[in-house]
Design a binder for these strands. Sequence first.
DNA 1: GGTCCGTTCAGGGTTTTTCCCGGATCTACC
DNA 2: GGTAGATCCGGGAAAAACCCTGAACGGACC
Lengths: 221, 221
Amino acid sequence: MTGSDKTKVSVMVVDDHPIWRDGVARDLAENGFDVRATAADGAAAIRISRAVRPDVVLMDLNLGETSGVDATREITAALPETKVLVLSASGEHSDVLEAVKAGASGYLVKSASATELVDAVLRTAAGDPVFTAGLAGLVLGEYRRMADSPSEGPPPPQLTERETDVLRFVAKGMTARQIAEKLVLSHRTVENHVQSTLRKLQLHNRVELARYAIEHGLDEE
Amino acid sequence: MTGSDKTKVSVMVVDDHPIWRDGVARDLAENGFDVRATAADGAAAIRISRAVRPDVVLMDLNLGETSGVDATREITAALPETKVLVLSASGEHSDVLEAVKAGASGYLVKSASATELVDAVLRTAAGDPVFTAGLAGLVLGEYRRMADSPSEGPPPPQLTERETDVLRFVAKGMTARQIAEKLVLSHRTVENHVQSTLRKLQLHNRVELARYAIEHGLDEE
DNA sequence: GGTCCGTTCAGGGTTTTTCCCGGATCTACC
DNA sequence: GGTAGATCCGGGAAAAACCCTGAACGGACC
């Protein structure tokens, strides 16, 4: 622990919901934590954390602009002394693994009680990895799976902007020609984007693409 | 206002996230509200609200078992004096309309600030409908649209058992041949079931079928 | 300059889907 | 017995999707 105060563990709360954010912040303050800062989005979280260097960052995953995962990656890279404890509404396995890969020291679902939260922050500050029931095993299992294959792992399937555009329309049920018209393209180009997206995501058809898009929120807006 | 206290507006908070629930409850208590009760799920909300008869129920939509919409319906039916103010993370149009149809007096997205929340609860208790920016117009527009068409609605297109079976697999991204093998059928038969399903639901391809299945929960299990 | 990558287009192939049709049971209901 | 619907099978044909390939352009980076 490298808190700049004597006894208190310093904390920063990142969440885009003001009510939640302030509620958690006050909760922690009343339980003896030094709440140094709060932030509403990933960009602010990155910026402010560099300045205040908290012991623990409580990070919501579901932010608006910069994702909580990105912010987690940036923060843990810049501040190795700072631990990031993810607080997310979803217990989605992929979310957990993403967060851990980005450097999170723990993952708590929001259904946790106030006392569980306090306990989790303390343990995180102490260097203990904290995971809500069932998730610890998941991460362990994934770790073992990775350890078996020497230097592998699902490479971050990042789609290009155009591929994301096309994917959104595919998920709506449009054909290549319809999408081509919408984006002012040749339908062959659209088909090519679909192809490379299928390859990158290791999927096999448009229905699976649609499910992927829906599960990852690409489908909204 | 029919609060049984003199000056205070009585409130009940329903949310499955303990931290959020307690945070909001304390917030309201500190702002002069009489927080009579809290509940973690729809069933408890219905039961407890009958006993405490709060002026306003702050209802989260995204509960576990009984949905917030169902709870809203039950509560407004049983307690006409009680107003339900929905507090939801999503600003999804369909969610708003569902909630209003179930009897909600207002709809606030969770990105609202603490002061907005306090103000909204007060106005709800006073009988004012409260909606976050943009949603008021939506409800009005929908109301007008309904008033135009006397007593209509999309007739529930009922699929046969076999069609539902096939649809489930289609929604998983399987091809006709794969489904045929699974169900021990000819792939032509599977294609025929897909065809008749497309006709009945007035859809045009498998992606739209998948979306339909997901939205109607056919996709689970 | 050279290389990489994103974006665009297209040829040429196979497979799958989409759409129309007819025919065969079986069951249920009038 | 007739009729209707659910279930099964199939033919045929056009469209779309899937898969691989090559190629051209511009921007970024070394």
